[in-house]
């Protein structure tokens, strides 16, 4: 902890790092299944507002808010996923961005909307002001334990039938279907799991950041989540964790550079994308980069067999 603090990583920064690692894992699930979905920020918003309203306004403990938020995000993910997951690639990305915007605007206008339906004034999301004074319930160890449990689950998932089906769908959806995999089921399940995970991260984050407003869950949050996975790499689940850590810690480590830190941050991200296209956690990518730096081509001549 002392060492971390000396390079600018205080406990709050560490908490954000852990949260962003969880968010990175939530998009990793969909990316690993070949779905380019940017809906995670939207589900994070749904989960967070549900969780916060449950703890703050109904006095539930943290785990109550956590389960409530995860549950509602999962329930909403199903009817969204069924039609939207028929789309692919950039079309799926655009549709899911649209979903995120709808969620953000609905939360923004939630109070007058519900008031007009039930016929009496209601204060739940507090519109653009957002909710403040959220009880401080999340401890750092909660986050560490949660991240470890999720990592274990994902590691095991990769060695199960379901996890192999996910990888197969990413590589060739039609062939996967011909192997007896119910593609629609697997894709929707993964979409729901991803939504639930994003919701959990949101609830946990709100209970130490202590304020939330709809602007926190817009397009830029969706892209940030994607950046964690892209920087870290999606060849293994360790990638998004490292990506979330690095991208969160970097602005703090670079604090001495003051106003230039945003530029340095961007340059590092660019360098990684250009020279390590598989992300930071990708041994093959590092090997290739090493070869390039030493001025060797990757072509290895094979010696002719004699005798």
């Amino acid at each position: 902890m002392e060492l971390l603090r000396s390079i600018g990583i205080s406990e709050p920064v560490l908490q954000f790092m852990l949260i962003n690692a969880i968010l990175g894992l939530s998009i990793y699930l969909t990316l690993f299944t070949g779905m380019f979905s940017l809906a995670n920020a939207g589900f994070m918003a749904i989960g967070t507002y549900t969780g916060v309203i449950l703890t703050q306004q109904f006095g539930l403990p943290l785990w109550g808010g956590l389960i409530g938020g995860m549950l509602l995000a999962g329930l909403i993910a199903l009817p969204i996923g069924l039609p939207v997951l028929r789309l692919r690639d950039i079309y799926l990305a655009i549709a899911t961005i649209g979903f995120g915007e709808i969620v953000r605007i609905l939360i923004l206008n939630f109070d007058p909307l519900v008031s007009s339906i039930v016929g009496q004034p209601i204060k739940m999301t507090y519109g653009a002001l957002g909710i403040s004074g959220i009880p401080q319930l999340t401890q750092t160890w909660h986050l560490v334990v949660f991240l470890i449990i999720i990592s274990y689950c994902i590691a095991r998932l990769h060695r199960s039938r379901f996890g192999r089906a996910m990888a197969a769908i990413r590589q060739d959806e039609q062939a996967a279907a011909n192997m007896g995999i119910n593609v629609v089921y697997v894709k929707n399940m993964v979409f729901i799991l991803s939504a639930v995970l994003a919701a959990a991260a949101g609830v946990l984050k709100a209970h130490f950041a202590r304020t939330i407003d709809p602007g926190d869950y817009g397009f830029s949050q969706a892209v940030d989540i994607l950046a964690f996975a892209v920087l870290g790499g999606t060849t293994t689940f360790v990638g998004p964790i490292v990506g979330g850590f690095v991208l969160t810690a970097m602005p703090e480590i670079l604090r001495d550079f003051k106003q230039y830190r945003g530029i340095i941050n961007g340059v590092i991200l660019l360098l990684v994308i250009v020279y390590l296209p598989g992300g930071l956690v990708n041994p093959a990518g590092w090997a290739r980069l090493w070869q390039r730096l030493r001025g060797k081509s990757s072509f290895k001549p094979v010696e002719a067999e004699t005798g």
Partner: peptide
């Protein structure tokens, strides 16, 4: 292993 998918029954939870 993938192509034996439909012969299996164990859920992802059981692998945990």
């Amino acid at each position: 292993l993938i192509s034996q998918h439909s012969q299996g029954k164990a859920s992802a939870l059981e692998s945990l």
